[in-house]
Simulated scan of single mutants.
Amino acid sequence: MDFSWDDLRLFLDVARLGGLSAATQTTGLSAATLGRRVTALERQVGEPLFVRSQTGYRLTPSGEDLLLRAEEVEAAMMALKRWKDGTIGERMVRISAGAWTSAFLARHVAQIWTAGDRFGVELVTGSQKVDIGRRHADIGIRNERPSEQWLAGRLIGKVAYGLYARPELTSGVAAGYFVGLAGDGAQTRSARWLHARHGDRIATRGNDVMSVLELVAAGAGISVFPCFVGDSDPRLSRMAGPVPELETELWLVCHHEERHTPAVRAVTERIASLMREHGALMRGEGAAP
């Protein structure tokens, strides 16, 4: 069975955007044309790829399988194009991490990637684990040992958390108020800890960690941050020592089949070295070197 890359590319747009209407914007095709192309691809596969409804297109199990394989083809086609264009090399190394760790890596990108490398790097930021098994990322930085048998894990440090506020007794700080996290981020361990102990004193919230940081820096109240975040921000002051029950481990995770490829191995070694260099900061024992 021969697949057309153009058909797979259209399938990827519909699958990722959840329907024909949204995919018209990225493909430049009409919904009717996209519908015909998707139906033709389903006939070629011999099984339905989507469950169609009023709210959009949802992948069937066969569609999920094709999505995984189409993403592999997409990665190969992009690598081929980069090779032809003589640009950044044969692949993009995707690093999955939470918002704070992604921001930390971005600030220290010179230690994990240089313009001379024959690969690029992409930060995949989110509060939920990204599926490395399905190649949605090449490397993950997690707070626990991986349980999946196809993943290799390496303990590279520990992360401490503490309560921080603007040093001046102003606004919400003076009143003893706290700043909480709303939305998906409210399910993180530190956010739940803050709500359990100080929920009745939360006066302001942000629906992402960066807005919480800005609220605290502006004096809206007190909140909990990783020590490598709070101790590195001159606008904040730690109110006491690290909170023992919030300490987490720092694991570097990648797929067994990928960990020895040159690009992935290079980036994992550089990240491990970076975290060792800043180990005291991560553990809440001092400022950045």
Rank of each mutant, 00 (worst) to 15 (best):
Q149N: 08
H260L: 06
A240Q: 15
E148G: 09
A218D: 10
E249Y: 01
G120S: 15
G56L: 00
R94I: 07
G172H: 07
L250R: 08
R52L: 05
R154W: 12
V130A: 14
I112R: 00
R235L: 03
S21H: 09
A174C: 04
R107H: 08
T248Q: 15
L274Q: 04
R276T: 14
M210N: 13
V121W: 07
S62T: 07
G28N: 11
M239D: 01
Q25C: 03
N143M: 04
A23T: 09
S30V: 03
Q149R: 12
G28P: 13
L29A: 01
G284P: 00
L12A: 10
S211V: 12
L169I: 01
E247G: 12
Q128S: 13
G241A: 14
L29E: 08
D117I: 00
D7S: 15
T27A: 12
L68R: 11
A266F: 04
H198W: 10
M210T: 14
A240E: 14
W100M: 03
S96M: 01
G230R: 08
A106Q: 12
L123M: 08
I271L: 03
A196V: 05
W251E: 03
L181K: 02
G162S: 14
S96E: 10
K129A: 14
L68K: 06
E64D: 07
V173R: 08
A79K: 04
D85C: 05
R69H: 12
A32G: 14
P146Y: 01
E90Y: 14
E257M: 04
P146D: 04
